[in-house]
Amino acid sequence: MRARALVPAALAAALLTVTGCGSDGSSGAAGDSAPEASAASSAAEQPTTPDAGGAGAGVPEVLAFSGTTVDGESFDGKTLAGKPTVLWFWAPWCPKCRAQAAETAKVAADYAGKANVVGVAGLDTNAAMKDFVAETGTGSFPHLSDEDGAVWKRFEVTEQSRYVILDKAGKTVYEGVLPGGDGLADKVAGLTG
């Protein structure tokens, strides 16, 4: 992993508790005894808030966040409500993230309209994030530019190349690393099927 002079040391220390790019590939699901069964799960089980659209449906509190995409567009997490959601936490310099890109883009295309896929880029500059999206061909789904780490902190993600998968009610059903994205399609199929 090459160091970036532009990444503030405090942000890197707050977000990364593990050295390297991702972990050894171990993974956990909510309810498993694995350490990755995260506290994000408990955050996802918080009460819902009224839907801004007035349709009577609730929006899980975990989706009450906003941000800006790498293209400078506003993004509201509430738009993810009602569908399973894959949040892919990546960094532009991470080779494991680059290896996950093709499968993540395929899942986004295959499940368009049935599930949400959102990249959450961090640990670098927006320019590097935009380059990663262009180089990996992952521009068909939104990518948040999370330079300050707010979304990473919200989901208690401490390393890149990590997926957080929420069911349509906003409950975390999986958090972990899927090397090369292997298994992502099966996990999404199980939530949309």
Rank of each mutant, 00 (worst) to 15 (best):
A3T: 15
R4I: 11
A9K: 13
A10R: 14
A10Q: 15
L11A: 08
L11N: 12
A12M: 12
A12H: 14
A12N: 13
A13V: 12
A13K: 10
A14G: 15
L16S: 09
L16V: 09
T17V: 13
V18R: 15
V18D: 12
T19R: 15
G20R: 04
G22A: 09
S23H: 13
D24Y: 02
D24L: 06
D24T: 08
G25T: 10
G25S: 06
S26T: 13
G28T: 10
G28Q: 08
G28F: 09
A29E: 07
E36N: 10
A37C: 10
A37M: 01
A37N: 11
S38K: 06
S38T: 11
S41C: 15
Q46R: 14
T48L: 07
T48N: 12
P50K: 09
A55M: 10
G56T: 06
A57E: 12
G58H: 02
V59A: 04
P60I: 01
E61V: 09
V62M: 01
V62Q: 00
L63S: 03
S66N: 14
V70M: 08
D71M: 10
G72C: 04
G72H: 03
S74Q: 12
S74C: 05
S74I: 08
S74R: 14
S74K: 11
F75I: 00
F75M: 00
G77T: 00
T79R: 11
A81Y: 11
G82R: 02
T85R: 01
L87K: 01
W88P: 02
A91K: 03
P92Y: 10
W93G: 06
C94M: 02
P95S: 04
C97I: 02
C97V: 01
R98W: 14
Q100Y: 04
A101G: 07
A102T: 11
T104E: 11
A105N: 01
A109D: 13
D110F: 06
Y111P: 03
A112N: 12
A112E: 14
K114I: 08
A115H: 00
A115W: 00
G119C: 05
G119Q: 04
G119F: 03
A121Y: 03
L123Y: 07
D124L: 03
A127T: 14
A127L: 13
M129P: 04
K130R: 15
K130C: 09
D131C: 05
D131M: 11
F132R: 10
F132I: 10
V133E: 01
A134Q: 14
G137V: 02
T138N: 09
P142C: 03
P142H: 01
H143D: 05
H143G: 06
D148N: 12
D148M: 08
D148S: 12
G149W: 07
G149N: 05
K153S: 13
F155L: 02
E156R: 12
V157A: 00
T158F: 14
T158W: 14
Q160V: 02
Y163C: 07
L166A: 00
A169K: 08
A169I: 01
G170R: 03
V173K: 00
Y174C: 05
E175A: 13
G176R: 06
L178V: 11
P179M: 11
D182C: 08
G183P: 03
A185D: 09
D186G: 09
D186T: 07
V188N: 04
G190C: 05
G190Q: 05
G190I: 03
L191H: 03
L191I: 04
G193H: 05
G193R: 09
